[in-house]
Structures are given as structure tokens and as C-alpha cells.
Design a protein around this nucleic acid. Structure first.
Lengths: 149, 149
DNA sequence: TATTGTTATACTCTATAACTATA
DNA sequence: TATAGTTATAGAGTATAACAATA
């Protein structure tokens, strides 16, 4: 290998992610939503999904785990949730204007902090880092786990 | 800002780390140790610590959380754990030769898989990515959370 | 009978607080 | 009284399975 000896990638990413999450929590609390709720808003804003099951899969959660989150978001009128007339088993989900605003406000605050952290890197490394993270985070899980397929 | 609009860093790192951990689990199971045990072995190998409390802090765990792990590692003779004659409250911890071998075998397997994943990146991006991850993972948590201090 | 969403149950993890033995 | 290690308890989070409505 051309890279020098190194610690495990996962072992380095773990504390970094934990710190980034610790930075997010007060922001989320200030805006009155949970991490799961924020995750749901982002997913509904960026890539509309039809069913709750599809949404759960999109954010890597169990379908039973997001129900209370959806209840809260609906109560707060940050999402709409209507029975599909074409298939009355399905609840059609959509982010509302208020949800879009809330999501944007939270994201702006979170990204502002992340910019501050990323600013500690040299500009070229920062760009390459973000390129790499985007590329790696798009890989299907099986490609990372090396699952036979 | 000079970087184009982007998703949250944490939101991208989260599924990536989950997949990396999913890739580690079968390796750890094949070698008969848990994630916490591996974490302990790495810590004892790379930066010897004196007390259990210091070890716990080094790996970001609670001191009560690693005790069963230490019990298992000691039973498997992968670590030694002796009462300090100078302060009999303290248990002196050290990795054994067997522990070092086990740790090395696990790390080789994990890093081999990570190399395969990293190989999907252009060489220059890969190097910059690893530099950036090393730098960011070394930042003190307060610098990432922006805690007043 | 298969599927969507929901609820209920059990299980795992984690955090907190007590306890012991030393100092 | 303070500290290192341990154990016990309780709480949060998660997964599994059962359930109701609809297809």
C-alpha cells in the first residue's frame, strides 16, 4: 500500500462524529426538534418519498421507530400526512412550508459550525475531504461491508 | 463560503461509519472479541495507561462500562491486570503478547477492507482525506462543539 | 394472502448511584 | 474524606413480534 501505517478509519471517524453530534444537539434543542425529526425533515425535503416505510429505509431507521417522530412533526405542522385515496393503507408524507423553514434554520446553524471546524484544514485538503466524504457516503452499504452479492 | 452548498457533514459521516462498523463486526466475531475489547486492546497497545479510569476516558467510555470487557480480556489472557503494590486501589493494565497478536490480526483484516473502500477514491483525494480525518479526529471535543472555554 | 401502518413486548445499552477497599 | 474499582438499579433506546385496516 502507498499510504503509511495508520489507525483504523472507523476508529478515527467515531470520536469525530460523536463530537459533531454533540455540537448538533443544543442547536436542535434550541429549535425544538429531535435528531430523528431533523433527519425526517431533511429526507422529505431533499428526496420526497411516498410511504412511511420508504422514508424509514431512506434514513436508515426501522419503520416502527419513526412513528412517534412523525406524530410530533405532524402535531407541530412541520409535515403533512394524508391517507392516499388510491391506496388507503398508505399515508402520503410531505414537508410543509413551516417545516422547510425550520429545517433550513437548523441546517444553517449546523453547517455554520461545521464550516468553522473545516476551516482548520488547508483549503485544498478541505475540498478533497468533502469530495471524498460525499463519494464514500454514496457507496451502497454492501460495497463497504464487502458483502457477497 | 468557497465550498458549494452541501449536506451536513455529520449526516454524511453517519451512514458511512455505520457501514464501516457493519464491516468490522464479522471480523471481530471471527476473532472472538467484541468492539469494546478491540478498542481496549488498541488503546493499551498504542498508549499505555495506568488506571482503568484513565483507560475508560481514553476510549470515550464510562469506567463502569469497560469492567466486563476487562474481565473477558483477562480471562482470555489478552491483557494482564495486577494490583499496584504502591497503591493497592489501582489495577495496572497491560496488553500481553497474545493480546498484541490478536489485536494486530484484527487490525490487519479491518484495514485491508478499508483499503479496498478507500481505493475507490482518486489517489490524491485519498491522501488528503486521510490527512483531514487524522487532523479532525485529533481536535479536542470542545473545539468541535464550540463550547465556551 | 400480502402489505401499510400501528401498538405492545422484550431486550440491549447506557447512565446513575450505591458499595468495598484502600489511601 | 477522597479515590479506584466494582456491583446494582433504573432508564433510554432499539428490535421483534403481534395486531388492525386495506388491498
Amino acid at each position: 500500500m502507498t499510504d503509511e501505517a495508520r489507525r483504523d478509519l472507523a476508529a478515527m471517524l467515531h470520536p469525530l462524529l460523536r463530537s459533531l453530534i454533540a455540537a448538533e444537539l443544543p442547536v436542535l434543542e434550541a429549535h425544538g426538534i429531535s435528531m430523528w425529526a431533523y433527519s425526517v425533515l431533511l429526507a422529505l425535503r431533499d428526496s420526497p418519498v411516498r410511504t412511511q416505510a420508504a422514508l424509514a429505509e431512506a434514513i436508515g431507521a426501522d419503520k416502527t421507530r419513526i412513528i412517534s417522530t412523525l406524530d410530533e412533526l405532524q402535531d407541530a405542522e412541520l409535515i403533512s400526512r394524508q391517507q392516499d385515496p388510491d391506496d388507503r393503507r398508505v399515508r402520503l408524507l410531505a414537508i410543509t412550508d413551516a417545516g422547510r423553514r425550520r429545517c433550513g434554520a437548523v441546517q444553517a446553524a449546523i453547517q455554520s459550525n461545521e464550516e468553522r471546524v473545516l476551516a482548520t484544514l488547508p483549503a485544498a485538503d478541505r475540498r478533497a475531504f468533502l469530495r471524498a466524504v460525499r463519494a464514500l457516503s454514496c457507496l451502497p452499504r454492501e460495497e463497504i461491508t464487502g458483502a457477497r452479492g
